[in-house]
Measured scan of single mutants.
Amino acid sequence: QVATSTVRILGMTCQSCVKSIEDRISNLKGIISMKVSLEQGSATVKYVPSVVCLQQVCHQIGDMGFEASIAE
């Protein structure tokens, strides 16, 4: 089973930030795809909930120095 959710990301300033986040999160087990939008300050994450949760994704992004939260 696959889920798609949006994560809000604060602190991104350039495409390099976007690429860094996409590269790191895409390597997590259970992540199918991730598309980060600098303009919208968010990311669309396609993932397998039984393998990885959005809290883990937000935590990983937080470790990179950005502020991440699950969009309502």
Rank of each mutant, 00 (worst) to 15 (best):
A43T: 02
I25L: 06
D63C: 07
G30F: 08
E39V: 09
I70R: 04
C58H: 06
S20Q: 14
G65I: 05
G11E: 04
E72K: 09
G41T: 05
S16T: 14
V51I: 13
Q40K: 14
T13E: 09
G62S: 15
Q60R: 07
K35H: 12
V2H: 10
Y47G: 02
V52T: 05
A68S: 05
C14E: 05
G41C: 10
H59I: 14
V18S: 11
G30V: 09
E22M: 09
A3G: 04
S26N: 13
S5T: 09
Q60K: 12
S42G: 05
E72F: 09
Q60F: 13
K19R: 13
S42M: 13
E72A: 10
A43Y: 02
K46E: 15
C53T: 14
T44S: 11
G62I: 15
Q1R: 06
T4V: 13
P49V: 07
Q55G: 09
L54Q: 00
P49K: 06
E72V: 10
K29Y: 14
I32W: 04
V36D: 01
G41E: 15
T6E: 10
S20L: 14
T6F: 13
D63T: 13
V18T: 06
V51Y: 07
A71I: 14
D63K: 14
E72N: 10
C58R: 10
V51L: 14
D63Y: 09
I31Q: 00
G11D: 04
L10Q: 11
Q15C: 05
G11W: 05
I31H: 01
L38W: 06
I32P: 00
S42V: 11
Y47E: 00
L10A: 12
I31E: 01
I32S: 00
H59P: 02
I31F: 03
K35V: 12
I9L: 02
I70E: 07
Q15M: 14
D23S: 11
G30Q: 04
A68H: 03
I9K: 00
S16H: 12
Q60Y: 14
G11N: 04
E22Q: 07
S26Q: 10
V45T: 01
S16A: 13
Y47Q: 01
A43E: 03
K35L: 07
Q60G: 04
I9C: 07
V7W: 01
G11A: 01
F66H: 01
Q40S: 11
V36N: 00
L28W: 05
Q15E: 12
S69G: 06
I61M: 04
I31L: 03
A3N: 12
V18Y: 02
Q56A: 12
M64R: 01
V7A: 00
C53A: 09
Q56I: 11
V48K: 08
V48I: 13
A71M: 12
A71H: 07
G65F: 06
K46L: 15
K35I: 08
P49T: 07
A3V: 15
Q56T: 14
P49R: 06
S69Y: 14
C53R: 11
R24Y: 07
M64C: 03
G65W: 05
Y47K: 00
S5H: 12
K29T: 10
L54D: 00
P49N: 04
I25N: 01
C14H: 03
G65E: 03
I70C: 14
I21C: 05
A3I: 14
V36E: 01
I25D: 01
L54K: 01
I32K: 03
V48H: 15
M12Q: 03
C53D: 12
I61A: 03
G11F: 05
V51C: 05
Q1M: 05
K19D: 13
G30E: 02
D23W: 08
K35Y: 07
S5E: 08
D23N: 12
K35C: 07
V45H: 03
E67F: 13
M34A: 08
Q40M: 12
V7R: 00
S69N: 07
E72L: 10
M12P: 04
E39P: 08
S16F: 08
S33T: 06
S69K: 09
A3L: 15
P49H: 06
V52C: 03
V18K: 08
V48W: 15
I70P: 09
G65T: 02
K46M: 15
S5A: 14
I25E: 02
E72M: 09
V57A: 02
E22V: 09
C58Y: 08
A68K: 03
I9S: 00
V48M: 15
S33K: 08
Q40C: 15
S5K: 07
H59R: 14
E72H: 14
H59Q: 15
V57I: 14
K29F: 13
S69E: 09
D23I: 10
S26K: 10
C14T: 06
L28Q: 05
I70M: 08
M12L: 07
V52Q: 02
E72I: 09
S37E: 06
Y47N: 01
G11K: 01
V57T: 01
K19S: 09
K35N: 08
V51S: 04
S16W: 06
V48Y: 15
V7C: 10
E39I: 10
V57L: 07
D63Q: 15
S69I: 13
Q60P: 02
D63H: 15
A43W: 03
S69L: 09
G62D: 13
Q55V: 11
N27W: 06
G65Q: 04
K19N: 10
P49A: 07
C17N: 06
I32R: 00
Q1Y: 06
V7M: 13
G41A: 14
K46D: 05
I21R: 02
Q1W: 10
L38F: 11
I9A: 00
D63F: 11
C53K: 11
S37M: 07
I61V: 04
I9H: 01
M12E: 04
F66M: 03
Q56C: 09
C14I: 05
V18N: 01
N27G: 12
L54S: 01
S33F: 08
C14W: 01
G62V: 15
R8A: 08
Q55R: 10
K46T: 15
G65D: 02
R8N: 11
S50V: 05
L28V: 08
C58V: 15
T44W: 09
S33Q: 09
V7D: 05
F66N: 01
T4F: 10
I9R: 00
A71Q: 13
L10P: 05
M12K: 04
L54R: 00
S50M: 07
K35S: 09
G41P: 01
Q15D: 10
M64E: 02
K46N: 11
Q60E: 15
K29A: 12
L28E: 03
Q60D: 10
T44H: 08
C17P: 04
S37Q: 07
I25C: 05
K35G: 04
A3D: 06
G41H: 13
V52Y: 00
V57K: 02
E72C: 08
V48D: 15
Q40G: 11
M34P: 00
T4G: 04
G30Y: 05
P49W: 07
V18G: 06
S69M: 11
E72W: 08
T44A: 09
V48C: 12
S37C: 09
Q55H: 14
E22T: 09
C17E: 14
V7K: 01
I61G: 03
I25K: 02
Q15G: 11
T4N: 05
G41F: 08
R24I: 08
A3Y: 15
Q40Y: 13
T6V: 14
A43P: 02
Q40A: 11
S20M: 15
F66A: 02
C58N: 09
C58F: 09
S42H: 08
V51G: 03
A3F: 15
S69T: 12
I21D: 01
V48Q: 13
T44V: 13
V2Y: 14
V45R: 01
A68G: 04
I21Y: 01
G65V: 04
S37K: 05
S33L: 07
